[in-house]
């Protein structure tokens, strides 16, 4: 069953155009439909994905250490990092919101970076992973990744709505940029990766298995 299903295009001499999805013969160097350059596998994407992931990982540090919002309340200025913000929510007995924010702002980016790292490592270093788990993880990351923008969305809303000068004012702090970049880079990193490389890896494993 597995053998039947695991026939890959390249084995059949077919290559899918990345741009328009046209199935071409591998002999073609350009897509018959859109004329884009055809590549059987984009090995460079692995490199790019790694680079972006590393960037995101680096940026994750300031995003968590630096304050993400500057709140001026009655003239008193408080800076909140992501984590202190969650703690504040917990202290304010808003645990469900804290959970959401924690998930969106800390759990998801971290998981995404770690997950991506695992995938990329799996590709790069031929690590042996259960194909099923990888697939589950992959879908999870894909689905949940978009929610990590929740924090920024909240910040941008707050900044727009809470603007009462010295009395009450919220402003994004440097960490907001870093955090946004973390999300951006992880998204892009996941996007640029030619996932076929992963499937190749998995097929090989299956074969080996």
């Amino acid at each position: 069953m597995k053998a039947n299903n695991s026939v890959q295009g390249k084995d059949l001499g077919l290559c899918r155009c990345d741009d328009c999805g046209q199935i071409n013969n591998t002999t073609e160097s350009c897509c018959l439909r859109c004329g884009a350059k055809l590549q059987l596998r984009d090995y460079n994407s692995l490199q790019r994905s790694w680079a972006l992931l590393i960037t995101a990982a680096i940026l994750l540090v300031p995003a968590n250490l630096y304050p993400i919002t500057t709140l001026t309340k009655s003239g008193r200025v408080t800076h909140d990092t992501i984590f202190s913000g969650i703690l504040r929510l917990v202290h304010s007995d808003m645990l469900p919101i804290a959970v959401i924010v924690f998930t969106a702002s800390i759990l998801v980016p971290w998981l995404k970076i770690i997950g991506l790292g695992i995938y990329l490592s799996a590709i790069s270093f031929n690590l042996k992973f259960s194909k099923k788990k990888l697939m589950l993880g992959f879908h999870l990351i894909e689905w949940i990744g978009r929610w990590s923008m929740l924090d920024l969305f909240v910040i941008s809303l707050t900044v727009a709505l809470v603007n009462m000068g010295q009395l009450l004012d919220a402003k994004p702090a440097p960490a907001a940029t870093a955090f946004a970049l973390v999300i951006l880079f992880t998204q892009v990193s996941a996007k640029v990766l030619d996932t076929r490389l992963l499937w190749d890896q998995l097929e090989q494993q299956d074969d080996a298995n």
């Binding site: 680079a51 972006l52 940026l59």
Partner: peptide
């Protein structure tokens, strides 16, 4: 790949910060 400039920049930025 030139994309590696990104982590370097980020690293530099982070280091500077």
């Amino acid at each position: 790949s030139p994309v590696w400039l990104l982590p370097i920049v980020a690293l530099a930025l982070g280091a500077w910060l």
